[in-house]
């Protein structure tokens, strides 16, 4: 009696172990090599990290589910490249935790959106997309201009980013909140510190046109304006020509 029970136990647990083993090997073999990919990936010494304001904007992009309708991944197809710009390189999203490559283009790809439109256009478009693009089916994001941006915890956000591998310095973490406020206020006295920590090319302006309050709109537009601009790697003389699959 007892021995049969023991055998039965072995069988169900054996089945469970078999399933786990068989299933995990597939994943391991496919994914493991990718963790050594750094050896083969393009180098981009000029790659910079997101400023605290841009990171906050990125988190708003995530919160509002923008990734569900906009990809940030230009494929190596000719029409993709002609429509959106040089195809995306792996290195360009190496600081993206998580990546926002997307899976659907209900709206256009945004990988190289930065600098394509003015801040005023972006703000008007976010407040009511149909004011600037009559055919658009994008939601209106009026509340972004009404909500004050939360900045008190940005230091912690940068510190966490460093834990997962983004090279933020101690100074950047310590000044995260001040830097976020400074980036949206070109007249303030924090601007020098900000550009010293993140580079002269950092966009410093009142993105939503109101210098008094730093809103979620400021953060999101700051993020949109940096898309595709963290490194020039993709614009360097083409490493390989785009695969032409369009006839």
């Amino acid at each position: 009696m007892f021995s049969t029970h023991y055998k039965l136990e072995r069988k169900s647990i054996g089945l469970a172990l078999g399933i786990m083993l068989v299933a995990s090997i597939g994943g391991l073999v496919e994914i493991a090599p990718l963790f050594t990919i750094d050896e083969t990936v393009e180098a981009a010494p000029d790659m910079r990290t997101y400023t605290p304001l841009e990171l906050a904007g990125r988190n708003i992009y995530i919160r509002e589910g923008c990734y569900a309708c906009h990809s940030q991944m230009i494929r190596t197809l000719q029409d993709d490249v002609e429509r959106y710009g040089p195809y995306s390189l792996a290195v360009e999203s190496k600081y993206d935790h998580p990546m926002l490559w997307g899976s659907k283009r209900t709206g256009p790809d945004l990988a190289r959106l930065g600098g394509k439109y003015s801040d005023a256009w972006q703000v008007a478009h976010l407040i009511n997309p149909r004011d600037v693009v009559p055919e658009s089916v994008m939601p209106a994001y009026g509340w972004l201009a009404r909500n004050r941006l939360r900045t008190d915890d940005l230091g912690k956000h940068l510190a966490t980013q460093r834990t997962v591998g983004v090279p933020y310095t101690d100074a950047q973490i310590a000044n995260a909140e001040a830097d976020a406020l400074a980036q949206a206020n070109p007249d303030g006295d924090g601007v020098d510190g900000l550009t010293e920590r993140y580079g002269k090319a950092t966009n410093v302006r009142s993105f939503d046109g109101d210098k008094q309050v730093v809103t979620e709109m400021d953060a999101l537009v700051a993020y949109l304006q940096i898309l595709g601009k963290l490194t020039d790697a993709a614009h360097k003389p083409a490493p390989a020509t785009a695969e032409a699959s369009t006839k």
Binding site: V29, E30, A32, P33, T36, I37, E39, T40
Partner: peptide, 12 residues
């Protein structure tokens, strides 16, 4: 890393 990218890909 003990295994380089090439070896791992070949193994896979």
């Amino acid at each position: 890393m003990i295994f380089d990218h090439h070896t791992l890909v070949g193994f896979a």
